[in-house]
Amino acid sequence: MAGHDGSSSSFVETVAGFTAGIVSTLCLHPLDLIKTRLQVDRSSSRVNGSLRVVRGIFQNEGGVKAFYRGLTPNLIGNSTSWALYFLCYSNIKTARWTWCRSLEEELTSSDYFLASGAAGMLTSILTNPIWVIKTRMLSTSSRIPGAYASFTTGASQIYYSEGIPGFYRGVLPALFGVSHGALQFMAYEKLKLRRIKKTFTLASDDDHAEPQQVRWRELGNLDFFVMSSLSKIFAGCVTYPYQVLRSRLQTYDAHLIYRGVQDAIVQIWAKEGVAGFYKGLGPNVLRVLPSTWVTFLVYENTRAYLPDLISRA
């Protein structure tokens, strides 16, 4: 599999995304659970929300172990999503880049946005059933009657009680959320290109240095750290409310409370105000930034070193 053909590139992108999803989930699952509990909380109280949730889980649901409820669907969902996402995004971007290259053009912000958006839509549709199960497991204690005991139990219960449509609850907000990833990757790619251009330096300070003396310095982990942070914060500030809507619509009793996306928006606005759309933002920021760092650092490093490992195999 050595070489740089399309199949090798696709394999590297898939493995890099899959690995990044697993590592980031294992590291940060408890924060994801806390964020989900806050997102589905319909009370108007926002006082000590995160501490209240943490204390309740620890005291009433079985201690530290309870913070890892729903780990299996989260692992399956994140690893699969990132693998599919990077695979599709890379192929779409490469196809567009080949076209632009023939026209002697560069990829624009809209090219990155559209490539990321298309990859995100496909990934969201294919993985939404996993996220429904994950949200329901994370949003409830395992001690509540009817709570899913495992990933497979959840899948079978949804199928027999709600049918196929049950697996696609919250898919509209999830598709809207594609804009988050599109904005993030657009910003990340443009920051990356800007940084890459700045890393072209002369081999010497001689003003008469030949073009051949221009050398390339690869981007380092600090570069990826900063760029991933800035792009995530930018995208998060714009699109966070969709996550709250998606979580509300994916809970066990959502069909008894909301008639759809529009009704959920109206109810949240009427009962909780603007702040209701940003519930869980605190732990989400704490979760997504480390998650983003881990995901992109693992992805970029796996992507960089995996081809050498494959060629030596």
Rank of each mutant, 00 (worst) to 15 (best):
R195G: 13
P173D: 07
E210M: 10
E210Q: 12
V171A: 03
P165L: 02
Q184F: 11
I144V: 14
G146L: 05
G154R: 08
T153M: 00
K190Y: 01
Q184N: 09
A209G: 05
H180N: 03
Q213W: 03
S179Y: 05
L193M: 11
T199F: 11
V214H: 04
L172S: 11
T199R: 15
F200R: 15
I196N: 11
G146E: 03
F185V: 04
R215Y: 12
L172C: 04
A187G: 03
Y168C: 01
D205Q: 13
Q213S: 11
E162P: 10
Y168V: 06
G177M: 00
P145A: 11
G146I: 02
A174G: 10
V178D: 02
S141N: 04
R143W: 07
G163K: 06
T153E: 07
I196P: 03
L172D: 01
P165S: 06
A209N: 09
A209H: 07
R194S: 11
T153W: 01
L191H: 05
Y168I: 07
T201Y: 09
G177A: 02
S142N: 11
W216T: 08
Q184P: 02
I158D: 00
R169Q: 07
A174F: 05
P211I: 06
D207F: 11
G163E: 04
P165C: 02
S179Q: 13
I144M: 09
G154A: 00
F176T: 06
I144K: 14
L202A: 09
G181M: 15
S142K: 15
K192W: 10
E162W: 05
W216R: 08
H208W: 12
Y148D: 10
F185M: 11
M186Q: 07
D206A: 12
L138S: 12
A174K: 15
K190T: 14
L202D: 13
E210A: 13
H180A: 02
W216E: 08
E162V: 06
H180Y: 09
H180W: 14
V214S: 04
G163H: 10
P211E: 00
G170S: 07
S204W: 04
R143A: 15
F200A: 14
S141R: 10
K192F: 12
L138T: 14
R215E: 14
K190V: 14
P211G: 00
R195H: 10
K198F: 06
A149Q: 13
H180Q: 12
P145K: 06
T201L: 13
Y159S: 12
A149K: 07
W216M: 05
H180D: 00
A174W: 05
F167P: 01
T153C: 05
W216K: 09
H180S: 01
Q157V: 08
S156D: 08
A174T: 08
F200I: 13
K190M: 14
Y188G: 01
F151M: 13
P173A: 00
L175Q: 09
D205N: 09
L172R: 07
F200L: 13
I144H: 09
K190W: 08
E189W: 06
V178T: 10
T199L: 15
Q157C: 09
H208Y: 11
K197V: 02
V214Y: 12
